[in-house]
Design a protein around this nucleic acid. Structure first.
Lengths: 282, 282
DNA sequence: CGTCTCCTTGACACAGATCAATTAACGTGG
DNA sequence: CCACGTTAATTGATCTGTGTCAAGGAGACG
């Protein structure tokens, strides 16, 4: 049976307040790729590709990086079918990568928060098979892959970082790919957002979501109504306070407890609904 | 067929068609990591890490590779919590990686067919967070990561392959992570198995599944009963013939049509096989 | 031949999708 | 500043795809 779920595309028209807020204390949004970013002083460096580079290689790396024009909400960074030639690092804001299948259903593949790398999945096919769209005003660094890859041959530390970034990506994907209930997935999502807020230097209980309910739903493989309802349920049980995209976590531990089973590191706590489905056989 | 026949037949029928052909004069399975595998003559090389290496680096690479003892069905290659120190390449047979959540519910993260690399997701955490278990009698090459990684610094081509393998892994994961119906997922699964059979030199319509219905269900996030029912439905509509683990695809194009929406290449019209039936519901 | 394990099939239940309607922001133009 | 339109978010009422429970069947193996 055809079986259409959420099919509309929402290109986050959102609070511009969110974007810059988190970490642009020094730098006002650059409108046209003017100044080179300075990895050396970038607050995100520990989480970015040049993490742990020595001063000299770092300088060379900086020279490869280009700063990209700021993206307005809804603007594309790249599109399905574009040739891959560059990775991107999110400096401010938030983007989503998504693909629309032949039936018109949109699948949000990932959200990309401050400090994260976009485009890793295109290295192999050498072509983007997803659209990357800014959810709020965002800016990204532009890391030409050929140059980076070439440079990595000389600088093992960079090579290590590259491989780690890839592996981490795989690692994080396994979390959402499992078979979990809507509550578990949403709780895990909120915790993830919270953690990333903290990484970017923001508070971890006051969340200003960059994405719509629909984007969240498409990402978590739910209906938007379900996301809404579960948020309401969380609110009623005192876990959080939700007002549109403004979310306040009142009881993070409670959310952790719900989401725990999705954390690959912490298998061994908490309960979930479906008692068993058997396992084992060795 | 590439895989040894059903589970516990006579001890050690590593399918001669594959196993024997490329890796040894002897037809008997290697029980203890005796002979070094010869990447140079391995039929899988184009799909493996040393793809495209020049003769000299290839020889050095071969010297790093160790052959592993054959794994019996149900035997573990590694377990959750094991320290990561090596990647593995499947030479014969088929393995699954899986993790058990707090409730004892098993999640199959991936199946690993002939020619595929296992362990990529453990590079970053430097620890395995999944069990790797042989589904049928299998053998794997043992690729010590530190040595490989070190060697890759000298041989760019190998580095490229490593990154490509990682990226490909990410790429393939996006396929099953989407929001698809049970039919779509199962159809896509069968097509994937078929494609991998072909890669390994087998036929693409006569499939001998290495995994149980339960493994398939856990992988696709379904109940085993659902897998059974949908196979029955496919059979009734003439798409295939299913007898336990012996599956014959009668109408691969029909399956393609059902699974199309999951093919990342088809999104946006890149390189698509056929236009789909439209998404009208009713 | 019995036992075991995997697979299949049926009956029923429920989480979550779908349909539908209302309310709340946020423009925009007058 | 206020009507108006548009889109996002909520809430309620149903429907349904799949999960769950239960009961055989069919190979495999000793």
């Amino acid at each position: 049976m055809p079986w259409s779920r959420n099919r509309k595309t929402s290109a986050g028209t959102a609070d511009p307040a969110v974007a810059g807020a988190q970490l642009s204390g020094t730098t006002t949004p650059i409108k046209t790729g003017a100044a080179r970013p300075r990895c050396g002083t970038c607050i995100l460096r520990p989480h970015c590709l040049p993490a742990g580079l020595a001063p000299e290689p770092l300088r060379k790396f900086e020279n490869m990086v280009q700063h990209f024009a700021t993206l307005a909400p809804g603007e594309h960074l790249f599109r399905v079918g574009d040739t891959f030639h560059s990775l991107y690092a999110v400096r401010t804001g938030c983007l989503k990568t998504c693909a629309v299948d032949p039936n018109g259903r949109e699948h949000v593949l990932n959200f990309h928060f401050v400090g994260e790398i976009i485009g890793i999945d295109a290295i192999f096919p050498e072509q983007h098979f997803a659209d990357a769209i800014a959810l709020v005003e965002s800016s990204v660094c532009h890391l030409p892959y050929r140059a980076i890859s070439q440079f990595a041959r000389e600088v093992p530390e960079l090579q290590v970082q590259l491989v780690r970034a890839l592996s981490r990506h795989v690692f994080s994907m396994t979390s959402i790919s499992g078979d979990f209930s809507a509550e578990e997935r949403l709780a895990a999502f909120l915790i993830m957002v919270s953690a990333r807020h903290r990484l970017a230097g923001g508070g971890s209980t006051e969340l200003q979501l960059a994405m719509s309910r629909q984007d969240i739903a498409n990402y978590l493989r739910l209906a938007t109504e379900t996301v809404s309802r579960i948020l309401a349920r969380f609110q009623k049980s005192g876990l959080l306070q939700a007002n549109r995209r403004q979310i306040t976590l009142l009881n993070p531990d409670g959310l952790y407890a719900i989401a725990e089973c999705m954390n690959p590191y912490s298998r061994g706590g908490i309960n979930r609904r479906r008692p068993d489905k058997d396992a084992t056989r060795s």
